[in-house]
Write a protein that binds this DNA or RNA. Structure first.
Lengths: 133, 133
DNA sequence: CGGGATCCGGCTTGATACTG
DNA sequence: CAGTATCAAGCCGGATCCCG
């Protein structure tokens, strides 16, 4: 509990993700989680319905998508708009806050996608140097 | 736009994180994973030794930190420099690629931290509207 | 100090089935 | 279409012991 560590950049901010108990850690996980990140990314282009989203986020199950959307809606990043028609129609879209989060997330995602050649090359080097094979 | 089949933004890119089989998805998970994100964030300020890192990333176990560092090193985002002294000293630092990734990640992290008041307020609203009380 | 190896409990996840 | 309920499996992650 010493305060001797001066390297922390956020020690004076109200919320510090590096602290175990900080609620920002939970929200960050909703945002960056496997399905959270892809869901936010998909919604960045515009609102989507449940099954559209499901098709777009390849591999997500109904349960996980539903769960992910609930968490993001609860955090105020996604807005759910249900129309009481038959058959039911529900649109999901980013809130203004969610849009800012998703923008930063997409910057990261696109950079990672664009770096995959380097990453894959690094992996090969890594595996080769320590796998005697 | 709004032609449903044309909405995918990355369909022409070599790597598309929305596709289930794309290796970028794995790397993104290393980067945005619970400990990966915090590790990269911590290293953004400068190189750190194993136990410094462990103290900085509050709550991480030795095993998970070790595992996380291996994954990031393998992906070419972190460089490990071991000095054969006694006691051993090992420094971890970001590679140039890792720096760019961490920068974008920190932009997201800081924004989330700075939005926590809004997020927490949204949660209360959400919980209240569907509370059984 | 800087880890690796192992055991193991439990939370997360993924089918499947069912509903409005 | 848009989800919820249930259940089994499996992987994550912590605790512990070990070594160089």
């Amino acid at each position: 509990m010493t305060r001797t560590d001066q390297r922390t950049p956020d020690q004076d901010l109200p919320y510090n993700v590096f602290a175990k108990a900080c609620p920002s850690r939970g929200t960050l996980e909703h945002v960056t989680g496997r399905w959270g990140a892809l869901t936010l990314g998909a919604l960045y282009e515009g609102s989507l319905r449940f099954n559209e989203l499901r098709r777009r986020v390849d591999g997500v199950s109904e349960k996980m998508l539903s769960q992910t959307l609930h968490a993001l809606e609860r955090d105020g990043l996604v807005h759910r708009e249900a129309q009481p028609t038959n058959p039911p129609r529900v649109d999901y879209e980013l809130t203004p806050l969610g849009r800012e989060v998703a923008g930063r997330l997409l910057s990261l995602i696109r950079f990672v996608e664009g770096s995959m050649d380097d990453v894959l090359a690094a992996r090969e080097r890594y595996d080769e140097t320590r796998a005697t094979a």
